[in-house]
């Protein structure tokens, strides 16, 4: 019970600490709202402009979620294909690494040019940024199956695709979960960068817009909304994964079983 309580209290204490630091920085800056608005001003603005923020948050949220879905789907399929076909891996893996070496920021204008100012270019950006961590993590997991499990399957005269389905794939799920966590954390970057380059809506667009008009409090409110969404999304994915993979040792959620 006390452990449950601590789990709730700890993030609240962290949040309070951050707010205090923010307020302190605001004071030290001479309370100049046009440079760094205090937490209170930001909260007031957020409250006053809540419908506007929500409108744009929904756009960004949709971009992030669609990008996550698409990026994860592509990543999972790619990793499976690469793990199954050795030749494919030799040809495509270097390409994958090169694609990751090109910063998304650099191709963002191109994507906007090709896919337009709407949702598609941002979803593409988020997908691009998510695709690599998911593919790399899942491929790693598929490669690192416990050799004993594979030996056993061989002695059992297992069919290869059944080994993939019943042994290698479930064994790689914890690695995929790590990839998904990273993907969830970086997905907002893709969407917001896309909005900065060219958009007609979304929190990134709103921030750029507010910044240009010296509405720094609105910019902070948008930033805060984005952070809130990102943290909530990460938390949901993290808890969901822990629930879906109950056999994975997780020191946070489980005491060691007694022998």
């Amino acid at each position: 019970m006390s452990q449950r309580l601590a789990r709730v209290v700890r993030p609240l204490v962290t949040l309070a600490g951050l707010l205090l630091l923010w307020q302190a920085a605001h004071w030290l800056n001479g309370e100049r709202d046009y440079l760094l608005p205090g937490p209170l001003t930001t909260a007031q603005t957020a409250w006053a402009k809540a419908p506007l923020l929500l409108d744009h948050a929904l756009i960004t949220g949709a971009e992030i979620l669609l990008g996550l879905l698409l990026g994860c789907l592509l990543g999972v399929v790619s990793a499976l294909a690469l793990a199954q076909v050795r030749t494919l891996e030799r040809w495509l893996l270097p390409l994958l690494v090169i694609s990751q070496a090109i910063p998304v920021f650099a191709i963002a204008p191109l994507l906007v040019l090709w896919l337009g100012y709407g949702l598609a270019s941002k979803v593409a950006m988020a997908t691009l940024i998510i695709y690599f961590p998911v593919t790399a993590a899942f491929l790693d997991g598929l490669r690192q199956t416990d050799p004993l499990w594979l030996d056993q399957a061989r002695v059992m005269q297992a069919r290869p695709w059944r080994v993939l389905l019943l042994v290698r794939l479930p064994a790689a799920l914890p690695a995929l979960a790590s990839g998904l966590r990273v993907a969830t954390a970086v997905a907002p970057i893709g969407a917001v960068v896309g909005e900065w380059v060219g958009a007609s809506g979304g929190l990134g667009y709103l921030m750029l817009h507010a910044n240009a008009r010296m509405q720094i409090d609105l910019m902070f409110a948008a930033l805060f909304t984005l952070a809130l969404f990102a943290v909530a999304l990460y938390w949901a994915v993290d808890r969901g994964l822990a629930r879906l993979l109950p056999w994975v040792p997780d020191s946070r959620t489980r005491a060691a079983p007694s022998a």
Partner: peptide
């Protein structure tokens, strides 16, 4: 049939 030192049970 083959049985190793480690039980080789699939944890899931």
């Amino acid at each position: 049939a083959y049985m190793a030192q480690s039980d080789g049970l699939l944890p899931w």
